[in-house]
Amino acid sequence: MALITDERGGVLVDAGHSPGHAREIRGALVAAGLPEPRWLVYTHHHWDHVWGACAWPGVEIVGHVAGEAPLRAEAARPWSHRYLREQVRAEPRLGPSFRARALAMDSWDDFAVLPPTRTFTDELELPTGVRLRHVGGRHAPDSTVVLVPDSAVMLLGDCFYPPPVHLRQDGDGPDLALVHRLLDDGYQWYVSSHADPMTLDEARAAVEG
């Protein structure tokens, strides 16, 4: 997750993995004196990036059009701990993902999966100057990177990660070629969702080494 904010408004990148997680982040924003975000951007539709959305009232949710149908299908499922157990029994490869979901959720009261309220296809610039660029990839077809030109930061989401565990095949690994295509002298920091930030030089060394 990331928050980009200035006098034009705040952009939240990804929603958190649960409503409880989202409420913790909201509390931290209040404690830091930061405003509530006006926009919530999904880097892609996977649960650990979107399940907190229902705890961010009043935001416009922005995501790539390819993520809309999967999220509508997810929204229709009867989510509960019992349902998660049933799904894992039927398809054991779902175990890592669905067990993580069970641990993230302490209550299903008022929980809802929210599809984007605004979609885009290739690129979109928000009123704050934050830019969204669809890159796709094997991890998720709707993978989107978030460009913050004023700060020379590129938020990569999970775009270069392998497919989720239940879809992964032998030989699947990080898509370093995708990262290589994204490297740009105008961006000095590269931040993925589950790793430490890297400078441009560090990112180049990682993909070329």
Rank of each mutant, 00 (worst) to 15 (best):
R133M: 11
Y190V: 05
E86Q: 15
P78A: 02
L132F: 10
W56C: 00
D185H: 12
V11D: 00
P37F: 02
R131N: 07
S80H: 06
C54S: 13
C54K: 11
D110H: 14
V207C: 08
C159R: 01
H194R: 14
L3A: 14
D109I: 02
L84D: 06
G58T: 05
A2C: 14
G157V: 01
W108P: 08
L12R: 08
L103N: 14
A206M: 12
E208Y: 06
D48Y: 05
A206R: 03
E36T: 13
G209N: 05
G33K: 10
R23W: 06
I25M: 14
H49E: 05
G67M: 04
V11M: 04
L124W: 14
L167K: 13
Y187L: 09
S80R: 07
D48K: 00
P127H: 09
V191N: 12
P197E: 02
D175M: 00
A32C: 15
R23C: 05
D6T: 12
A205I: 02
R168Q: 12
R89L: 15
R93K: 15
A140G: 04
I61C: 01
M105Y: 01
S80N: 05
T128M: 04
D150G: 14
A73L: 10
W56Q: 03
A22K: 01
Y42W: 06
V165M: 08
G67T: 04
R118H: 14
G129K: 07
L12I: 07
V11T: 05
A53W: 01
P197N: 13
W108K: 09
T119G: 11
R85T: 10
L167R: 15
H134Q: 12
W108Y: 15
H46M: 04
G20L: 09
C159E: 01
H139W: 11
L167N: 08
M1L: 15
W39C: 10
G209A: 10
E68W: 12
A22M: 01
R168N: 04
V179Q: 01
P37K: 11
V153I: 15
D196C: 10
G157E: 08
P163E: 03
D6P: 01
L132G: 02
L84P: 14
G52W: 03
Q188N: 08
D170P: 10
Y83Q: 02
A28G: 12
V65R: 12
A152K: 13
E7W: 14
E68S: 07
G136R: 03
P35G: 09
P96G: 11
R181G: 14
G52H: 02
I25W: 06
W56D: 01
D184K: 03
V145T: 06
T117H: 11
